[in-house]
Structures are given as structure tokens and as C-alpha cells.
């Protein structure tokens, strides 16, 4: 074999190795962290390694996972959505009202409620996106505004009261557990994640989301209109807030105008811990799922240690910052490999 071909082959092998390394660092890095944390608690925390405990974690993870999946789209484009918590509250009210205030059989009212939740959520998201793009207002500000607007709208719609009396089959479905440890709402969350993963990874739309987060001006000068895709990202975030509202109703069986306070921050935390960069362009929705798991596992594990609600936020806050610091180091390391 000629020397040139030898060199060429060597380069190919190096490139392949780099790809493997990069993949393991980006996607698997967070997953490894999760496995280590789970192992740690299994070995040290009493009752952690029991089916009941895992079941509980899966139940608690569902809402945040759904919210965070939509949030991933927005953060990948370089934006932020602070409104999802109160949009969720508004949607729980809308969904609960549809299911309780009509004489329709549940077989009709439940799908109608789902559509209503998704519609209202998507509308809130679309308004966010439109205002941001039309008047070039930072997404932080616009969604902060929507946080208040949606919260107020939820109070007005519900007359400032909680709505109970959801159809029994609906409640039963929410309590359903499949294969011993998988609650129905957790499977819904996983479904949402899988759909999001497919869109981001395999569709033209997903490619644009990443490209816009990487360099919006380059996308524009390549002959596209980034604003459409950015508005769509916010619409998706609103849509998942609507789905999360249905999950909330399935789990807690009550529509409440004061639901979801602070949920947006948990969703953002899950996305960031999952390795998605706030600057946009980098990250994955699988990472987001893992990030949501890490948050909940920590919370539950600490609880079992006897750490009360006072200590938990200290640890979780530290972990969020630590994740981003580690991310920066990981990035530097990846670049070092790439330019080697």
C-alpha cells in the first residue's frame, strides 16, 4: 500500500475515533452521571432501590419532562420560555372546565379537553414567538410578560377556584401502571420525548432549529426566513405546556389557576443539565430527558436521606451550576480533540 493511502486511512480512523469520543462526551456524559447518581443512592439511601420508589420517581418526572421537551426546542434556537408554568396553569383550567362543564360523555370530552389544552398552549406560544420576532423583543421579556398574562387569564377563567370532578375513567387512566413500574403518565412523557427526538434529529425543521441556534444570520443569508422556525419553536413549547397540563390533570385530578408556579425553572434546569447550551445550537432532547431524571433522582434520594425541603434546593441549585461548568470544560475538551 502506498504511503499516501496509509496516511489517508490513518486520518479516517482518527476521525472515526473523534466521532465516537464526541458522541460519548456529549450524549452519554450526562447519562453516565445519571447512572452514577442512581448507583450512589441505591447503595447508600434506604429504600431507594425498590420498585415503589422508582415508580414514584417516574410519576414525578412526567410533567417536567413534557415541559422540558418543548423548552429544548426554544433553547436550541437561542431563546428562553419563562411562560410555560403559568401557561400550564391556564391549560389545566381550560382542560378541567371542558371535562366538567359539559354533559358530553367522557369519550368525547376527554379528547376535546386534550385539543383545548394543546390549542390554548400553542396559541400562547405562537403569540410569544410572534411578538419576539415581529418587534425584536428579547424572548426573556416577552415570555416573562406571558407568564403574568397566562396566570391572570387562568384566574379569570376559573373564577379563582380549583376545578374538581373530572370523569372517573380519566382519573383511572392517570393512575394506571403498566408492567409494574411504568405509570401511564410517564409513558406519555417518553412518547413526547421520542416525537421531539425524531423531529430534531431527522426532519428539515429540526435541522433549521440547530442551524438557527448556531448562526441565525448565516441561515438568513442562505436564503431562509429564520423567524418562521423560531415562532414555530415557541409554539411547540406552548403546545407541550398544554400536553403537560393534561398530564397534570391525570396526576392530580384538579384544574388549578395556581398550578405550575416555578415549573418553567425546573424545565430550564432539566434542559441545561441535559447538556443543551443556553446560547443555542448544541444539545439534544435525549439529554433533556436524562437531565429531568437527574433532577428528580437527586430530589428523591436526598429526601430518603432525611434531607428536608430546606436542604434539597441547596444541593439541586449547586448541581445546576456545576452541570454548566462541566459543560464548558467538556466543550473545551471536545474542541481540543477536534483540532488535534
Amino acid at each position: 500500500m502506498s504511503e499516501a493511502a496509509e496516511v489517508q486511512r490513518g486520518r479516517r480512523a482518527a476521525a472515526l475515533w473523534n466521532d465516537v469520543l464526541r458522541f460519548s462526551m456529549r450524549e452519554a456524559g450526562v447519562a453516565v452521571a445519571l447512572v452514577l447518581i442512581v448507583l450512589f443512592f441505591c447503595l447508600t439511601a434506604p429504600y431507594f432501590a425498590t420498585p415503589e420508589n422508582f415508580l414514584k420517581i417516574f410519576v414525578q418526572i412526567a410533567i417536567n419532562t413534557v415541559l422540558a421537551s418543548g423548552m429544548t426546542f426554544v433553547i436550541l434556537t437561542g431563546g428562553i420560555d419563562l411562560s410555560v408554568g403559568s401557561v400550564l396553569a391556564l391549560c389545566t383550567v381550560v382542560g378541567a372546565l371542558i371535562m366538567t362543564d359539559s354533559d358530553l360523555p367522557f369519550i368525547v370530552s376527554v379528547p376535546l379537553a386534550l385539543l383545548g389544552c394543546m390549542g390554548v398552549g400553542a396559541l400562547c406560544g405562537a403569540i410569544n414567538g410572534f411578538v419576539i420576532e415581529q418587534w425584536k423583543v428579547p424572548s426573556f421579556i416577552v415570555t416573562l410578560g406571558m407568564l403574568n398574562v397566562a396566570s391572570g387569564a387562568a384566574r379569570v377563567t376559573s373564577n379563582n377556584s380549583t376545578i374538581t370532578g373530572l370523569p372517573q375513567p380519566f382519573i383511572d387512566f392517570g393512575n394506571m401502571i403498566l408492567w409494574g413500574v411504568f405509570p401511564s403518565i410517564f409513558l406519555i412523557a417518553v412518547g413526547v420525548i421520542l416525537i421531539g427526538w425524531f423531529i430534531l434529529r431527522f426532519t428539515v425543521f429540526g435541522r433549521f432549529i440547530y442551524a438557527i441556534g448556531t448562526n441565525e444570520e448565516a441561515v438568513r443569508l442562505s436564503g431562509h426566513a429564520p423567524r418562521i422556525y423560531k415562532i414555530a419553536a415557541f409554539t411547540i413549547s406552548g403546545l407541550t405546556a398544554g400536553i403537560a397540563a393534561m398530564v397534570y390533570l391525570l396526576r392530580l385530578n384538579v384544574g388549578s389557576p395556581i398550578a405550575g408556579v416555578g415549573y418553567e425553572l425546573n424545565a430550564i434546569a432539566a434542559v441545561i443539565i441535559g447538556g443543551t447550551s443556553l446560547a443555542g445550537g448544541k444539545g439534544s432532547i435525549i439529554g433533556t430527558l436524562v437531565g429531568a431524571c437527574i433532577l428528580q433522582v437527586l430530589s428523591t434520594g436526598l429526601q430518603l436521606f432525611g434531607a428536608g425541603d430546606n436542604v434539597k434546593p441547596i444541593v439541586i441549585g449547586t448541581v445546576i451550576v456545576l452541570a454548566v461548568v462541566l459543560d464548558a470544560y467538556r466543550d473545551r475538551f471536545l474542541r481540543a480533540i477536534e483540532s488535534r
Binding site: 440547530y210 442551524a211 448556531t214 448562526n215 444570520e217 448565516a218 441561515v219 443569508l221 445550537g281 448544541k282
Partner: peptide
């Protein structure tokens, strides 16, 4: 770099 390329993305993309 600032306007022509998606620096963080692959050659194919």
C-alpha cells in the same frame, strides 16, 4: 465565519 458558515456544525450540514 460570522455570516457564511455554521461553524459548530458539520461540513455536510
Amino acid at each position: 465565519k460570522g455570516q457564511g458558515l455554521l461553524l459548530g456544525m458539520s461540513c455536510a450540514h
